[in-house]
Nucleic acid binder design. Structure first.
Lengths: 233, 233
DNA sequence: AAGTGGTCTAGACCACAGA
DNA sequence: CTGTGGTCTAGACCACTTC
């Protein structure tokens, strides 16, 4: 039975999606229960469950126990943003990757960073500034603070060889965190590093990550002019 | 058995995640097969499968038939970008939403738009410009082209009352597409609409959506200065 | 050929939220 | 209490990939 092209959870998912797209099941409408659909499609309830669960994860359905499954009233679109290593991001553009460490010093951070790392006043952290280049031209400026209480080992790392971005991914896996995308005008310092005109509109990503043991890092990645962050819906 | 706190697919998922985080299972390493893990955890293989499938979807594991399951070599982080209706986005900021239609005309688009809509040369589309406001101040400038071949019904819509953004979500569900986030400097026109200084660095989202029947719309949403697109990793 | 993950089944029990 | 989705099980077969 499962060899038939018309069965399987993907077939159920696609058929449900089709019914929503065609308007047969309108926004907010209650659709038949899992058992009823299983009977209709001639498959097990678990198969229907799998299909509906996927659609709910996509934001297309809204499921509640005892209540049933409804078509989402205003289907909220979601895009998945892939956040690769900067090295891989540049390599994916077909450019030869290189990396230059600008500064690396242990010092007391300014207030905004201190708050982000939940650092007591007057305690030092590791400040790293570096430039990621593609075919020799600046692509990304990395401005990072690392919490030495949580990640003391980075003090021994040779950040001239391996970027802090990469060291952290390798040595502190599974960090959770927040991310923000913003636009900023290049000041004189950033413009000089990235080789663009002062005042250029640049896109930047700010990340703040932590693990169970505590805050890990606060970083701002500023991209060269014209950079686009792309994804599919 | 399944009432015990230590079982269930979430428990398996969390334990596997812990083993990766602790380094017990390092990057690139082959982990035990589903059957072995099922025996170890005292559950069915399907339960282990569910747990590992979730972790693989998160990019933490790499699974291949016949080969087995490996810890991802460089765990690629992913952020989920929620893309709500602009009205809901502004309401979520606690601001009172209002909307103003600027222009709405049927005309032949410039080359860049024509290509995006895969429109034959000389064919007209619907151009809509509108402003979304929060508490009366401009928040988002919407510059949109709609393909009238795919969505002829929008020609009858009263876009002074309901924004094209909202009309499309309600009437063309399930559109797929691409999205790009970019920074741009406000030109005189944009600056006047958004009430900011010319040259301000602004963040914009470009979307291109289509359904099976054909291209639907190309839109650029330009946000007021200081806007941040936020998400969690 | 063999071993891995991918999926399906039929049945069961549980958790939750309305009536 | 009742009916819904959420999950688990034990077993089975399939699909793919490498040997």
């Amino acid at each position: 039975m499962n060899a038939r092209s018309g069965t399987g959870w993907r077939a159920v998912r696609d058929e449900v999606r089709r019914r929503i797209a065609s308007g047969k099941w309108g926004p907010g409408q209650l659709i038949p229960g899992e058992s009823a659909l299983a009977r209709e499609f001639g498959c097990a309830r678990a198969t229907v469950n799998r299909a509906l669960r996927e659609l709910a994860a996509d934001g297309l359905l809204c499921r509640k126990r005892r209540v049933g499954t409804r078509v989402a009233a205003s289907p909220e679109r979601r895009a998945i943003l892939r956040i690769p290593l900067i090295r891989e991001e540049i390599a994916a553009l077909g450019l030869g990757y290189s990396y230059r460490l600008i500064t690396r010093e242990r010092r007391v951070p300014p207030e905004a960073i201190r708050a982000g790392l939940e650092l007591p006043a007057g305690v030092a952290a590791l400040s790293v500034q570096a430039l990621h280049l593609g075919d020799g031209t600046p692509c990304v400026l990395e401005d990072r603070w690392v919490d030495l209480r949580t990640v003391p080992a980075i003090a021994e790392a040779d950040l001239a060889q391996v970027s802090a971005n990469e060291w952290l991914v390798r040595n502190v896996p599974l960090a959770e965190g927040r991310i923000a995308i913003l636009a900023l005008a290049a000041d004189a310092g950033v413009a000089a590093r990235l080789g663009c005109a002062p005042g250029s509109a640049l896109i930047a990503i700010e990340r703040q990550t932590q693990i169970e043991a505590g805050p890990v890092t606060v970083a701002r990645l500023t991209y060269r002019p014209g950079h686009r962050i792309e994804s599919t819906i």
